[in-house]
Simulated scan of single mutants.
Amino acid sequence: MSDSSEAAAAGRVNIVAVAQRAGVSPATVSRSLRGMAKVAPETRQRVLDAARDLSYEHSPRASGMASGSRRAVAVVVPYITRWFFSTVTAGAVDHLRVNGYDVTLYHLGDAAIRDHFFERMPLDARVDGVLTLSMPLTEEHTLALRALDIPLVSVGSPIPGSPSAGIDENAAARSAVNHLLHLKHERIGFIAGEADDPRFDFVSSAARRLGYEQALRAAGLTVDERLVAAGPHGLEGGAAAMTQLLARSIMPTAVFAEYDELAIGALWALRRSGLDVPGDVSIIGIDDHEMAAMLDLTTIAQNVTAQGEIAAQLLLQVLRGEAGEAAVDPVLLPTRLMLRGSTSPPGTARSASRRRTRRPDRGR
Rank of each mutant, 00 (worst) to 15 (best):
I188D: 02
L137D: 12
L143Q: 03
S134N: 14
V203Y: 11
G220E: 05
Y212E: 10
G161C: 02
G161P: 06
P232A: 15
A147L: 08
A219R: 05
D196Y: 04
S134E: 15
Y212K: 05
A219W: 13
L133R: 08
M135T: 14
D201Q: 10
M135L: 14
S164N: 09
T222A: 13
A206P: 01
A218H: 05
G166K: 01
S175Q: 11
D149K: 06
A229C: 09
A165K: 04
L183S: 06
M135W: 12
A239H: 05
K184P: 01
R209F: 15
F190E: 01
L137P: 00
V130P: 02
R217H: 14
G129I: 05
E225P: 11
S204Y: 00
A195G: 06
S204R: 10
P158L: 07
M135Q: 12
A230Y: 09
A173G: 04
D128G: 13
R217W: 06
D197L: 08
L210F: 10
V203H: 13
N170T: 13
L180H: 05
A195E: 10
I167R: 03
L152Y: 00
A173H: 01
G211M: 01
V203K: 00
H185S: 06
G237H: 09
R174G: 09
V153C: 01
E140F: 01
L221D: 03
G237R: 01
E140Q: 11
D149R: 12
E140I: 04
L137M: 11
I167G: 09
E169M: 06
I167S: 02
R187L: 12
D149W: 04
L183A: 04
A229L: 02
A239D: 03
G231A: 15
L235S: 12
H179G: 08
V130E: 04
D168A: 13
A172Y: 02
G193T: 13
V177L: 02
A171V: 03
T222M: 09
M135R: 06
A144W: 00
R217M: 12
G161N: 05
R208G: 08
H182S: 15
P151E: 08
A206L: 14
H233E: 13
R217D: 13
R209V: 11
P136W: 10
L152W: 02
L227R: 01
P136F: 07
D128K: 08
E140N: 10
L227H: 00
I159L: 04
V177F: 04
V155A: 09
T222F: 10
A173V: 03
A206H: 04
N170K: 10
M135Y: 07
A207Q: 12
E194M: 14
N170M: 12
S134M: 11
